[in-house]
């Protein structure tokens, strides 16, 4: 009963927040000489402010492409994306991005990397330092603030990348398989850490992954994607209580959801495997 109350409160809070994403009839077609590759076909997606949505699908189904369009890196062939009712035409600091690759600028220290967005916006030095230190502390990187990226482990680099995006208070945080390159142990810690931050900041998150367990553990909702052409195939709400802990991945509810999601994407995975032979 209490849980329901909390969930309702949270939903009510979120409705007043920024970070609504509306994807309308979005298609992306790559043209080669005499051949068209329809990577995304009439994608329809509506995301509430503060929602944590996982895009799940086999590799090659167009998850990154969809995220790149929302980020503004890529122009769609048809359709459009609205973030808080504003159409997207180019990248901007209102949509933070965390890349799968380690993407800290090698020539800047951890501090300078995270500070960059604020510096570009012209935030005064003192305020910048305070904010960056706050976020560094939040993810346990304060003592590494003067290290260069090559001196950090993969997990530290991804933590730094996450707060580099969040320190600018984006409306939406776009994450493209950010933990895929990490070892299982580190990945679990990163997932819990991410949920912790998200709980505080209530930023909308669109999280791309091909890992079913990760999607269930993190998301409020999973959108599974199909291949050829890329489509949203099904939307599965995940109403596991929050805050979630790693032990929960062994619960009965979790496993039931796992089975449900697995059945959903199984067919598409088979399809994508066949096509690659």
């Amino acid at each position: 009963m209490e849980d329901v109350m909390v969930t309702m409160q949270r939903t009510a809070e979120r409705q007043t927040l920024k970070g609504a994403v509306q994807v309308e009839g979005l298609s992306v077609v790559y043209r080669r000489k005499n051949y068209e590759n329809r990577v995304l076909d009439s994608i329809q997606l509506s995301i509430q402010p503060g929602e944590f949505v996982c895009l799940l699908g086999p590799s090659g189904c167009g998850k990154s492409t969809l995220l790149n369009v929302i980020a503004g890196f890529l122009k769609p062939s048809a359709g459009y994306v609205l973030v808080d009712q504003m159409p997207i035409s180019r990248p901007g600091a209102d949509r933070g991005f965390v890349f799968q690759q380690y993407s800290l600028l090698p020539w800047k220290t951890t501090f300078q990397n995270i500070e960059l967005g604020l510096k570009i916006r012209g935030v005064p030095k003192a305020e910048r330092t305070e904010r960056v230190h706050e976020y560094l502390n939040r993810v346990g990187l304060y003592k590494h603030r003067s290290s260069y990226p090559h001196q950090l482990s993969g997990g530290m680099q991804q933590r730094a990348s996450i707060i580099r995006a969040l320190v600018n208070s984006p409306s939406v945080l776009l994450m493209d398989e950010p933990f895929a390159a990490l070892d299982a142990q580190t990945r679990h810690m990163m997932q819990e850490m991410l949920l912790g931050i998200w709980d505080d900041l209530k930023t909308t998150v669109i999280f791309v992954t091909h890992d079913i367990e990760e999607a269930i553990f993190l998301g409020d909702r999973i959108c599974t994607m199909g291949v050829h052409p890329g489509r949203i195939k099904s939307e599965i709400p995940i109403d596991l209580p929050r805050p979630r802990h790693f032990d929960d991945t062994l619960s009965k509810e979790f496993l039931a959801l796992h089975r449900q999601v697995f059945t959903c994407i199984r067919e598409e995975t088979m399809k994508s495997m066949e096509e690659s032979f």
Partner: peptide
Amino acid sequence: TVLIRVGQCLGANSWHIFKDI
């Protein structure tokens, strides 16, 4: 591409991308 995109989604204009990246 990744380095340039890093700059773009931090709100960098051409001048920032030029000098910082």
